[in-house]
């Protein structure tokens, strides 16, 4: 009976590589790709007066000792959702989506004995603003930020910052549109007078932050109190100056291992504890003036992009972390 459950998505290469190490250490595990949970697995949650039991295939969820939440599947692109698309102006798919979320919630809390690597509940309760507040509480420097729906407020904030500012999505960066007309919603530099010439007085609440003059960007993979840091020399390239994710594939940014100062390490540990996370990918900036500024943590962030350039063997370390949690 496998004691480790891996919740991930179809085709996730990082999961494959970690599983190779679980095989190497000869431990049993069950992999479930959340995107084909409903199509390829049998789930049943029976509840009566004195008993409740959630089963996936032949396993009771309460029997899993360790659960690794690697990746959530994209329900939006499941068969069920695609069939319901455009029916009754998407009211059906919206209903289905809520139902699905409720089901995943029930699944999540059925792992009564489990130790988590990346606790789903902690992930779900952590938005960008809460992250900034917790980081600051943990002693980390954060960018000065304002979320507002009001032009006057925005103008005043930009004036206060004096220097440059950026606007970025409160939730996730996204690319959408049609193949011919793509819109990329990602951090963008704001001109000094951006809001002065803005026609609307009110708009959707937007996140504005001070622009940080980068020396380097840091991407830190956190696992069980250890930090594996990588420096990204994105300021050497105009294309990647504001956001290294505007990848330059011809001449990729330099990615090298980095030693964080001890005080920063301590604050990161403290922050992750506040956030209830034992793993995550943390984005920071080291400014030209020597500030280490916390931007955000992505609990399910890609570790491959740190592990590979820095040769950290994070896939093996994650496998060992899961195995340790069994004992």
């Amino acid at each position: 009976m496998p004691m480790i459950l891996i919740l991930t998505a179809h085709g996730d290469h990082s999961t494959d590589q970690t599983i190779d190490w679980l095989n190497y250490y000869n431990v049993q595990y069950q992999r479930i790709n959340i995107d084909d949970l409903l199509a390829n697995h049998t789930v049943a949650y029976s509840i009566d007066h004195n008993h409740s039991e959630f089963t996936i295939d032949q396993h009771q969820t309460s029997d899993f000792k360790v659960v690794w939440f690697r990746k959530s599947g994209v329900f939006r692109s499941s068969d069920l959702m695609l069939q319901s698309k455009n029916i009754l102006s998407d009211q059906l798919s919206s209903f289905l989506s809520f139902e699905y979320t409720a089901f995943i919630q029930a699944l999540t809390i059925s792992f009564t004995k489990a130790k988590w690597l990346c606790n789903i509940e902690a992930v779900n309760s952590l938005d960008k603003t809460k992250q900034l507040i917790l980081a600051s509480k943990a002693g980390l420097d954060i960018p000065e930020s304002l979320i507002t729906n009001d032009r006057k407020q925005a103008i005043a904030f930009l004036q206060k910052l004096k220097g440059k500012s950026i606007i970025k999505p409160l939730a996730e960066s996204e690319i959408f549109g049609t193949p011919e007309n793509k819109y990329s919603i990602s951090p963008k530099l704001l001109s000094k007078d951006f809001f002065r010439y803005f026609k609307r007085k009110k708009f959707l609440p937007s996140l504005i932050q001070e622009y940080l003059e980068k020396d380097i960007e840091l991407r830190i993979f956190y696992l069980d109190s250890e930090c594996y840091a990588m420096a990204i020399f994105s300021q050497l390239d105009e294309q990647t100056k504001v956001d290294y994710r505007n990848y330059n594939f011809k001449k990729p940014n330099r990615f090298v291992p980095y030693n964080l100062p001890k005080t920063i390490l301590k604050s990161i540990q403290c922050f992750m504890e506040y956030a209830g996370l034992n793993t995550g990918s943390i984005d920071m900036i080291k400014t030209k003036s020597g500030r280490f500024v916390f931007l955000e943590v992505n609990p399910k962030g890609q570790y491959d992009m740190v592990s590979n350039p820095c040769n950290y063997f994070l896939e093996e370390k994650i496998a060992l972390s899961l195995i340790n949690k069994l004992n």
Partner: peptide, 24 residues
């Protein structure tokens, strides 16, 4: 040509770990 950089804190930039291992 971006093979090297100047820095005040060389200790922050460790050498690459040159281990090779495989689970297979």
């Amino acid at each position: 040509n971006e093979y090297a950089f100047y820095t005040d804190e060389p200790e922050s930039f460790p050498l690459l770990c040159l281990d090779w291992k495989t689970p297979n």
